[in-house]
Computed example of a mutant assay.
Amino acid sequence: MLRIVLFLLTNLAVMLVAGVVLSLLGVGSTHGAGNTLQLGNLLVMCFVFGSVGSLISLLMSKWMAKRSMGVQIIESPRTGEERWLVDTVAELSQKAGIKMPEVGIFPSYQSNAFATGWNKNAALVAVSAGLLQRMTRDEVRAVLGHEIGHVANGDMVTLALVQGVVNAFVMFFSRIIGNFVDRVIFKNEEGPGIAYYVTSIVADIVLGILASTIVMYFSRYREFRADEAGAQLAGRQAMINALRALQREQEVPDQMPAEMTAMAITTGKREGFSFASLFMSHPPLEKRIEALQNLQIA
């Protein structure tokens, strides 16, 4: 129920903000005389909706993560483990050159962690209770280094920008296809008809699926970069050991919500090469370990 409410709130915010922006820009109708597309207006509209959606999701990411994952923020450490966790994040953040993120723990048996936030100096780093229970401190430190690497690299912002551009082009080309079918095939010159809307929706779905491979490619690429950051901050062998610990848990059911998967250190699934792997947010753990073994650092 909470996820549905968050989804509706996000989309309502997108509609309100996009409407205001389009009004301020003076963007008019996307259709002109004879049911022709006004490509300039259409392009601006698509970029506004595509970008606003991604940016609002980014701005709300920390708030949504806390609620959807049940993250308990450590404001005043109550145990030695919490104190060590906060101190370790502080140490690694200083080494990475970013401000201290919020630190939290979320209830999950699966060993996992994630980082999110709209700004690298206003981020959230959270680990699962299962990870703290079953990993050694060196391994947990490496996982924290990986997540802080995401923050220092600005991965959340870059992913939002990539997603925004992809969304814009999907909307733009799907409406061009819809207009072509409406005007050329159905000979409709009196404004957008049912064929335009149906075709645009179908094209949105098809192009959206294909375009998601671009976003997922970047997501996989940033995991290699975050692993490298984790190795530099916490030691290469510790990072390798942490990934091997995650390998041993790949049969544990994935408990991360779909919208949080791209921000996690692992999806909890075996990922070999296949067509489906083009849609994976994370590279196979074997490939990540191999990349670290070839890394020329201590």
Results as ranks from 00 to 15, higher is better:
residue 109 Y to C: 12
residue 75 E to A: 00
residue 95 K to M: 07
residue 220 R to C: 01
residue 63 W to L: 15
residue 93 S to K: 04
residue 74 I to V: 03
residue 289 I to L: 02
residue 46 C to S: 10
residue 18 A to G: 08
residue 198 V to Q: 14
residue 103 V to N: 01
residue 29 S to H: 02
residue 121 N to E: 02
residue 180 F to E: 04
residue 223 E to H: 08
residue 210 L to Q: 09
residue 293 Q to D: 13
residue 72 Q to I: 09
residue 97 G to W: 13
residue 1 M to F: 15
residue 129 A to S: 15
residue 289 I to R: 04
residue 265 I to Y: 04
residue 76 S to N: 12
residue 219 S to E: 13
residue 124 L to E: 12
residue 212 S to C: 12
residue 179 N to G: 03
residue 135 M to C: 10
residue 76 S to H: 09
residue 245 A to G: 15
residue 236 R to E: 08
residue 90 A to F: 05
residue 116 T to M: 07
residue 213 T to C: 11
residue 204 D to N: 02
residue 73 I to Y: 04
residue 102 E to Q: 08
residue 141 R to H: 11
residue 25 L to T: 11
residue 71 V to R: 07
residue 174 S to M: 14
residue 98 I to D: 04
residue 262 A to C: 05
residue 179 N to S: 09
residue 71 V to S: 00
residue 26 G to Q: 02
residue 137 R to G: 09
residue 242 A to R: 02
residue 9 L to Q: 06
residue 241 N to C: 00
residue 145 G to D: 06
residue 11 N to T: 08
residue 38 Q to V: 15
residue 247 Q to A: 06
residue 94 Q to G: 09
residue 152 A to L: 05
residue 36 T to M: 14
residue 76 S to E: 11
residue 134 R to Q: 06
residue 19 G to N: 11
residue 219 S to V: 13
residue 244 R to Y: 02
residue 166 V to R: 01
residue 133 Q to N: 09
residue 247 Q to R: 07
residue 193 G to S: 13
residue 193 G to Q: 14
residue 262 A to V: 11
residue 58 L to C: 03
residue 94 Q to K: 13
residue 96 A to Q: 10
residue 135 M to R: 01
residue 112 N to G: 09
residue 75 E to Q: 01
residue 9 L to V: 08
residue 86 V to E: 06
residue 12 L to P: 05
residue 78 R to V: 08
residue 243 L to H: 00
residue 96 A to I: 05
residue 223 E to L: 03
residue 17 V to E: 13
residue 212 S to G: 06
residue 96 A to H: 07
residue 5 V to G: 07
residue 138 D to V: 05
residue 72 Q to Y: 12
residue 31 H to L: 05
residue 35 N to C: 03
residue 84 W to T: 06
residue 163 Q to N: 13
residue 89 V to D: 02
residue 84 W to F: 13
residue 20 V to M: 15
residue 261 T to W: 00
residue 66 K to P: 08
